[in-house]
Design a protein around this nucleic acid. Structure first.
Lengths: 238, 238
DNA sequence: ACAAAAGTGTTCAGATTACACCCATGG
DNA sequence: CCATGGGTGTAATCTGAACACTTTTGT
């Protein structure tokens, strides 16, 4: 009675270069498309099919395991080979879509439930893994390119009507850092004054008393006032 | 190597009462929440588990079958017992989400990929099937209530930034009918002049030369100028 | 004193809202 | 001639976009 269909999860882990969230130097003087852009986690396959190709972290769902639990396990497995702390506990995890073309895996029928995970900064990854540019990826195994692009689309869309940005930021952050997240994901720059006015008016931010210091005027640190994803009535265009 | 997981599809078929799309009399004089509201297709289960309860049309995915194909097959099976023409060819079909809590089916592990289907008017359904109010459903089998509510949420959201409304309308329709779709799905009334100005400005409608006649001034008929779903830059708030 | 990023207001154009009457037809 | 829904414009308000300088700190 059980149809011969295997069920897998594949996880698109997205993050931004450390320069965005952590204020490291980013050479903005070169205006040739040197804007930070989203990165995704890929691993090199060492067995056929697609041996040698990059692919998303993934794995089969075990019999008694929930789908999101399977996604977290896949991340934990990737973490054991890399920067465990960051990878194993993504700040945001949500289901994307399910891909089930009968021929998507040449070995047989494997239906994949895909997930989007967000991290505040790229974890250190080791060995056969790497962070690659999500908006211009190399060839990927299976239909992973389709999955990746649906992840990016989801993130871009959700940025404007929700607080998903928290997934790409540390607990406390400056308004400039928040703006940098929007700019990196949307790929265009925003007006500082309009952006600040808008996000403060939306009221999902809370002023921590603290400041971040650097070799310039200190910046006020904010946090999201609700943990987790909040859907906004209004929209962040700005 | 294949995990013992069965894969099913469940389909939420949504439509609106004939009065909305077909201009039949709807007694608007009674203002007690008598607004038309979305309906969904349910069938009565005649075997355990949940024997006697209402459930969404669904079924297991066959080995070589695509997911959307499985959803269409499930609809075709429901159609063979009902109004075949309308049901078997929904005007819109899209994947919703995948539900995989290990205990969602008491018989064993069944992961369900859910779909949203839209019809312009309720098909005639026979025997153990019925159209029930989607916004206030009775008890449903399994986690079908969750699936139903994610379908409604999806539809409501998508109405404002896409042309999904085509799924609930015949090929040619009047602006009042289009407005009635928005009002029924969103559950509140809209200003006629503002609505018309907005949707015409968005430019996804095309004036067919034709008119619809009734015992009143004839109404211009429109169609969507692109077949299928179009995402809008701007948004229909109105 | 200089470099670097933080912070802050105003003006203008376009969009959204609220609102009420005449029109064309069928019966 | 009456009932029914179709169709239309304008003024007030709100929102989004564009735009440049001063402040605070570290070095």
């Amino acid at each position: 009675m059980t149809p011969p269909v295997s069920l897998a999860v594949d996880v698109v882990v997205l993050t931004l270069p450390a320069s965005v969230a952590e204020l490291d130097a980013w050479d903005a003087s070169e205006d040739r498309a040197a804007r930070p852009a989203p990165l995704f986690l890929a691993g090199r396959r060492d067995h056929p099919p697609f041996a040698g190709a990059w692919s998303l972290p993934g794995g089969l769902v075990a019999g008694a395991e929930g789908l999101e639990a399977a996604a977290r396990r896949v991340l934990a497995e990737a973490a054991s080979r890399s920067d465990a702390i960051r990878l194993a506990a993504p700040r945001h995890l949500e289901q994307l879509a399910t891909f089930g073309a009968p021929t998507r895996d040449p070995r047989g029928r494997v239906v994949s439930v895909s997930y989007l995970a967000l991290l505040p900064v790229p974890a250190q990854v080791a060995g056969n893994a790497a962070w690659l540019p999500a908006d211009d990826p190399p060839e990927l195994a299976f239909d992973h390119r389709t999955i990746l692009s649906s992840a990016l689309n989801r993130l871009r869309a959700k940025l404007s009507y929700s607080t998903v940005a928290y997934g790409l930021l540390p607990d406390h952050f400056t308004l400039s850092e928040l703006q940098a997240v929007y700019e990196a994901v949307r790929g265009r720059s925003l007006d500082k004054r309009n952006f600040r006015r808008k996000v403060l008016a939306l009221g999902f931010l809370e002023d921590t008393g603290d400041q971040r210091r650097g070799s310039h005027r200190p910046a006020q640190l904010y946090r999201f006032s609700q943990a987790g994803l909040v859907l906004l009535d209004d929209v962040i265009t700005t």
